[in-house]
Amino acid sequence: MKDNNCIKIVEVFRTENGSVSQCNKTNSYILEFGGTTCSFKASDFIDFTKRVNSLDLVGMILSSSSVTDVTVLMPPYSERCFVLTLTDVLNLKELLGGAKFSLHLNSVIWECLRPHLYSI
């Protein structure tokens, strides 16, 4: 674990459509998706994931209006934005879901290891 912390950028999860990495130097997450790269603080990343998960896919499918063909998402504290089609939303959900699982698994592993790492 100690050696791993010296590596500044660690890949958390990757799909063929993008990746989520963690920067151990700045304590942030980096999302690469659809040609856009964004950096998030931990709390903002969780918030962004929640926003993506709450997108109304059924509404997008059922609506005949062209307005609902795409969804625009602004990551917090960023001038960039994601313009997502229905397929993009599904792909982004898959990516963020996988990243969230890996991050929680990492937390669980740390929870198990912590008593041994810092025992006197």
Binding site: N5, Q22, S43, I46, N106, S107
Partner: peptide
């Protein structure tokens, strides 16, 4: 890999 989630908060999402 650093546990950034735990560094952020001790509260679980739930």
């Amino acid at each position: 890999m650093k546990d950034l989630l735990r560094l952020r908060t001790s509260l679980s999402e739930e």
